[in-house]
């Protein structure tokens, strides 16, 4: 049966159900135990499963990931939480030297099946160090899967898929969606396939490629621009690595125009990669330049409200990009 619940409730439910179903699954991280996490994503798990399976770790992200990797090497299924994507940096060694390469360097002799839940994203007044997305850092690392849901339904299905995936999966959660993304979520078991994008709105005139929190803004922008007679298709990538090229290319071949929208910084972001893929594989189908609407190349999102507002991608900026593209 489907209920109308929030993204954060869907995330909690996915963990609880999988821990119930599979006793190899456990969660670890900072403040995830008795307090239920900074955003309450693990609320109730400590009471239900106890300290052995819901472990508050010392303040050391590198060790959170390294010990989860090790535990998965003996067959366990850890879900590690990184409280803020901003603070994933001490875990860089564990993620990019260990998690992404252990299978490759041992010719498949070892591997790690681990889920890292990472709270990310700006627009909540969090300032420089509680707003970063940082997902694209990891897209550059083959061996790591990277996903980010935009709906409550996908949040549960992608998380269950991540936990069951035999590879390391970085599961990014946008904090602005936790309580605003609400929708029908089945109470039973289901997965959303990793590596598969979803078309959220069908359209003829241009393709908008996006993911996460930006998906809702793009859908709003697509509605607004109908008044100019533009009918836009909106693709929610859902998985950033491995990218679902086919869905993107097929749509661009149909619409002949593409706008890529992401919150993360511009240079070497997902937008650059998608633009290159389209340029290489669908050049003949294009009727205009590929346009990117992204966060700026500015170190992080500043605190002062006018600065944060200027930094963030919003519906107006997306509509402006669409108008520019529509002119071709």
């Amino acid at each position: 049966m489907a209920r109308n619940i929030t993204m954060i409730e869907a995330i909690t439910e996915a963990m609880a159900q999988e821990m119930e179903r599979d006793d190899r699954v456990f969660v670890m991280g900072e403040d995830i135990g008795l307090s239920g996490g900074v955003f309450k994503a693990t609320a109730g798990l400590y009471e239900k499963f106890g300290e052995e399976r819901v472990l508050d770790t010392p303040l050391a992200e590198g060790n959170i990931i390294a010990s989860a990797i090790g535990a998965s090497m003996v067959g366990l299924r850890p879900i590690a939480e990184i409280q803020f994507a901003d603070f994933i940096t001490p875990a860089m060694e564990s993620l990019v030297q260990q998690a992404s390469k252990i299978r490759y360097r041992s010719a498949g002799g070892y591997g790690c099946s681990l889920t890292v839940r990472i709270c990310c994203g700006g627009g909540t007044g969090g300032g420089l160090y509680h707003s970063q997305e940082n997902a694209s850092w990891f897209v550059h690392e083959p061996g790591l899967k990277v996903v980010m849901p935009s709906t409550a339904y996908d949040a549960k299905g992608l998380l269950l898929a991540a936990i069951r995936d035999p590879n390391p999966v970085l599961y990014f959660e946008h904090k602005k969606l936790y309580r605003t993304a609400k929708g029908d979520v089945p109470d039973g078991d289901y997965t959303v396939p990793i590596g598969k994008a979803e078309i959220r709105r069908q359209g003829r005139d241009m393709t908008i490629v996006t993911y996460g929190y930006m998906t809702g803004l793009c859908l709003e922008a697509a509605e607004q621009i109908t008044k100019n007679g533009v009918d836009a298709e909106v693709i929610d990538l859902r998985t950033l690595s491995p990218l679902d090229k086919d869905t993107v290319l097929e749509s661009v071949r149909k619409t002949s125009k593409c706008l890529v929208v992401h919150e993360d910084k511009r240079t070497l972001g997902i937008g650059g990669e998608i633009s290159a893929i389209i340029a290489e594989e669908a050049f003949d189908d294009l009727d205009g330049p590929i346009i990117r609407i992204t966060g700026p190349d500015i170190p992080a999102i500043p605190f002062a409200p006018p600065l944060e507002h200027a930094w963030m991608v919003n519906t107006e900026k997306i509509v402006a990009g669409m108008e520019k593209l529509a002119a071709y």
Binding site: D86, P90, G127, L128, H130, P302, L307
Partner: peptide, 24 residues
């Protein structure tokens, strides 16, 4: 810091207090 950092993360170069990052 002209509003760049966060409220509690304060430094003031003339008196040599380092503007902190939040990363512990």
């Amino acid at each position: 810091d002209r509003g760049k950092s966060t409220p509690a993360h304060m430094g003031y170069p003339p008196i040599h207090t380092i503007t902190p990052a939040s990363s512990i």
